[in-house]
């Protein structure tokens, strides 16, 4: 370890990042709350306060479908919402590079306002730092979200059971494809737009109708395949994903073919993988489709008791292992 350096792959959401975090978090910060390794933490068993924090370093900071401000609100709101809590408050820390146009900062703040209003959260504390030109890339943002969980259900990566169904609330890969197209100046017949969205409203509707949601997680870096793998490991179950059931925009599929990428590993910013008891899956689909962020919701997999990680049942009837992401597909996408 002594001579090793941090590589971009350590931030890709894949295997190297998991090993890095497990190494340091386990070694220096271990406690019962953190050790659950969910994207959110529940503090003070009684009052059920939920906390989640996230930093945003996306390049470029403006992209089709949003900007770093919208992303910083949605990313943290979604992580808190995945616990089943009502998201109430956000803290906002900005690290700004010398030379950033003030007008761009204002645009980003407008986005933060708009997204936080939609999500119904208040920005209650903040911090601003400016670093020398070259010491950051425009602007970095950290947000911490606080929510109150008023329902009793156990929701988290450790509660998934064999037989559960896996639902996604819409098309996969849109965010990564939009960033890729934007960075490389590509244009497709249907331009990709990031799916970046606050999903707490949709989650609230879902939890009001379905009481057996086991786990929700947003497949951001590492995509559906990597997040499914995390949950399989946490709950010690197997997962089958059905290739034919995956909702994917043709233009995203085209971009993937062109760049040799697999949509299952591409980042999303407005999607949740929802693990739910089989008998409630159809109801959940109906509820999700009634929300503007769930129009293309689909059942894309199921949980098994076979401890073989994540297996993709391909469209042509074969099957293969879906491993965690190694290396990085595209760095700095969130």
């Amino acid at each position: 370890m002594k001579n090793e350096l941090i590589l971009l792959a350590h931030g890709s959401g894949g295997k190297q990042m998991r090993k890095l975090i497990e190494g340091f978090a386990g070694k220096y910060f271990s406690n019962p709350i953190l050790d659950k390794m969910n994207d959110f933490a529940q503090i003070d068993g009684g009052s059920k306060t939920i906390v989640s924090t996230d930093s945003f370093v996306i390049k470029p900071y403006k992209f089709p479908g949003g900007d770093i401000g919208k992303l910083a609100v949605c990313g943290t709101v979604n992580d808190v919402a995945c616990s089943g809590a009502d998201v109430k408050y956000l803290t906002l820390a900005l690290i700004i590079e010398e030379g950033l146009p003030i007008a761009d900062l204002e645009d980003i703040c407008k986005s933060i306002k708009k997204a936080s209003e939609e999500a119904g959260v208040l920005v209650i504390a903040g911090d601003t730092k400016v670093v020398e030109h070259g010491a950051a890339d425009g602007i970095y943002i950290n947000t911490t979200g606080i929510g109150i969980k008023s329902i009793d259900a156990d929701i988290g990566g450790e509660f998934v059971q064999p037989g559960d169904k896996i639902i996604i609330n819409g098309n996969i890969g849109d965010h990564a494809a939009a960033i890729l197209a934007c960075r490389e100046g590509l244009s497709f017949t249907t331009p990709s737009v990031s799916d970046c969205a606050p999903l707490n409203g949709m989650v609230k509707e879902l939890l009001a109708q379905c009481s057996n949601v086991r786990c929700m997680r947003d497949p951001t870096r590492g995509g559906v395949a990597t997040v499914a793998g995390e949950i399989a490991r946490q709950s010690k179950v197997g997962i089958n994903i059905f290739e034919q059931a995956l909702p994917i925009e043709q233009s995203v599929l085209g971009a993937c073919e062109l760049f040799g990428m697999d949509p299952l590993y591409m980042a999303n910013e407005g999607k949740l993988l929802i693990f739910i008891a089989a008998e409630e899956a159809d109801k959940a689909i109906e509820v999700l489709r009634g929300n503007k962020y769930g129009k293309n919701a689909a059942i894309i997999g199921e949980v098994t008791d076979k401890k073989q990680g994540v297996v993709l049942q391909t469209a042509i009837g074969s099957s293969r292992i879906l491993d965690e992401l190694t290396g990085e597909i595209l760095p700095r996408i969130c």
Binding site: G260, T314, I316, G317, S318, S319, R320
Partner: peptide, 15 residues
């Protein structure tokens, strides 16, 4: 190499 990947990706070897 792209064929190698495609053969695995679609599970052709098992067919």
């Amino acid at each position: 190499g792209t064929h190698t990947m495609a053969l695995f990706r679609h599970g052709i070897r098992d067919m």
